[in-house]
Every structure is written in C-alpha cells, then in structure tokens.
Simulated scan of single mutants.
Amino acid sequence: MVGHRVWIMTFILLSVLGCTGPRTTAVPASNPQERTPVLGRLPATFSGDFPCADCPGIRYQLTLHPDHAFFLSLTYLERNSRFDSIGSWIVSPDGQRLVLYDESVSPDQFRIIDPNNLRKLGIDGHDIATGLNYTLTRANDVESPESHLALRGMYRYVADAGSFSECLTGRRWPVMQQADNASLEQTYVKFRKQPNDELLATVEGRVVTKSGADGATPHPMLIVDRFLGLWPGETCGARLATSTLENTYWKLTRLAGMPVIVPEQQREPAMVLHQEQHRLAGSGGCNRLMGEYRLDRRLVSFSQVAGTKMACRAGMEQEEHFIEALGRTAAWTVIGEHLELFDAEGKQLARFEARALR
C-alpha cells in the first residue's frame, strides 16, 4: 500500500508542478542554417556540467537545429553512463524561455540569457534558487555525436527500402538493412493492408551519417538496434499539439501492451469523457459503453461501466479486457495527442489516440 501511495503522489506532483500552459506550434525553418532573433545562428550546440547528488556532475550537451529539432545528451561523469533524447523545441511567446518537448510528461525549460547562454529552469518553469551552475554555454563547433535513442515514428517499406519518419521532429530517415531491421520489416509486411501503408513503429536505434550506395553526399540514416513493436491504427499525432482529457474522442490503440485490432465491419473501441456530467460514453467495438468517472488532478477512476448486450463474431474478448482495464484504472497522463491509463502500481493498462469527435 505504501508503494501505491508513493506512485499516486508522484502523479499529483506532476500535475501541480508540471503545468506550463498550452503548447505553441512552431513553424519549422526550411534553411539548413538560420539566425533566430533570440538564439542566434543555428544549428548550435550548448554544453555545461550540472550538479549531481551522487556523482561529480552531469554533462549536458544540447544541439538545436533550425527545423526545431533538438538532440540532448546527458553523461553522468565517472559512471560511464549516457542518456540520449530527441524532440522539438520552441521559444515561448515572450522570447525568454526555450522549451524542449520529448516523450516526457513535463518539458525541460531554459531561460534564454543571451544567444550564447541558457540557464536551466525548475519543473515549475521558474529559476532554480541555488548558487550552483545550471548554465549551458554555446560551443565553438556544432557537435553531432552518434545518439542511442528510443524512437517512435511512421515506418513504411517500399521497393526493397524502408524509411522511418520520427514523430517528435518530423525527420525522415532511410533505414539501414542491418541489426534488427529484419524484425521490423517482417512485422510491417504482416500488418500492412496496402503496399504503401505507413504504420507506427517503436524501436531503439542510432542515427548515423552514411554515404549512399552511389557514393553521394553523406546523409543521416537509422540503424534499428532493437525492434520494440508495431502499432496498427495509431499515428504520431500532430507535432507539438496536445489534447485535453475531457471532451476528446479517444480511440483505443493499445491494451495491456498489445496493439488493438479492429475486426472488419466493426466500430473502433473508443471513449469520450463528458466533463459536464462526468459521464463516460463510447464503444467497446461491439457494444456501446457507458459509465461514470471521478477525476482528481492526475487520478481518475471509473464506475458503473456497462455495455449493451450484443454478441459479435469477433472482438468480444478484447472488449471485455477494455472494460476490465477501465475498472482497474487509478491514474492518467496525456502526452501530446495520446492518453495513457495506469493502475495503482503504475502499470500501463491502455493507450489511446485523440481523433476528431464523432
């Protein structure tokens, strides 16, 4: 029970401290280099060593690109451990803060001191009250280290060549035919309905710079070190967009870590949480669903969830698991246009994608 309370309190803290206002859609730059009003010439790398509770320091290396993509590397000194991430950046409307959006619930934020210096802000978006160093300084050269990344993107395989369009940055890379690429390719061929279909894939991989087969100018390519999953019916969602929990049509895309497959001539499993009466309405795929919900910041619970009594040839077991998952739900989070539901221990029960209300 103590573990349950600790996990639930973590969600409450994220709710209280992680509110940074609505995301602002940025217009990507089309030029390979660009001078921005507050950040100066891009691309640029900013670096610095930040304090660490149990190590000599954490080396931050942040590279910003004109198309609003960023690459961030965190190296824990004397531990030989490094964590890489990728995402999109924007500048706040007042021009004072740099905001980094990745797959985290709360974005990293930096105060733009001048085009050469960025100071890290707290999770609440305010200055960290300390005399320790939290400043990144522009480096003389643009650093492009080989990054080891957890990636989510739209994959397709056409004419014996695979390509991967990364969700957070919109960048598309050719996929090299090595490492675990064969698993990704074979699973895609199994699930696609048309030869040119794009399907959402999750992988662990590296973005490397390689010359083409014809010896052309080197360009970025993706090496898939580990294929994680393919998710038919799910997309990236709009870049830098976000949806609200309530009054949004949520299409069910994953259930207990497995992709949701919609049988032919059936409705897609989905739900809408109607704010005015705290009422749940939706479909399990075969039957209409209805119920009630109670919301307390990052905590949510469903009650009296029931459905009509139709019998369908397929999808009944999936519908039962959907209703069961709602009954076990204790917390939620929305990242971009995707909703995730969790049980009291923090295990993901279901994942949804926002669609136009229907």
Rank of each mutant, 00 (worst) to 15 (best):
R313T: 13
R119T: 13
R226L: 12
F342K: 05
S30R: 10
G229L: 02
G125C: 02
R288N: 13
S303D: 14
S163A: 12
S163I: 05
C55W: 02
E353A: 11
F50C: 06
K193S: 13
R79A: 11
R298N: 14
Q33S: 15
C286W: 03
Q194D: 13
S81W: 08
F227G: 09
S301E: 15
Q266N: 13
Y101C: 05
L100W: 00
E268Q: 14
V272I: 12
V207L: 06
H219T: 08
L252Q: 05
S73T: 14
L168T: 08
D214M: 08
L240P: 08
R82T: 15
A182F: 11
L200S: 07
I335Q: 09
L240G: 06
L118I: 04
V158C: 04
K309H: 12
A356E: 15
P56S: 01
S30T: 14
P220Y: 02
N80R: 12
I128Y: 07
R279L: 08
V224I: 11
S88K: 06
M258S: 15
K190P: 03
Q318C: 10
R152M: 09
C167N: 00
R206I: 02
G212N: 05
G48Q: 02
H4D: 11
V189T: 11
A29H: 11
S106I: 15
A213K: 12
E34L: 01
R239I: 11
N116E: 11
T20E: 13
R97H: 10
G95W: 01
K347Y: 10
M271Y: 00
S147A: 15
D67M: 01
G21K: 08
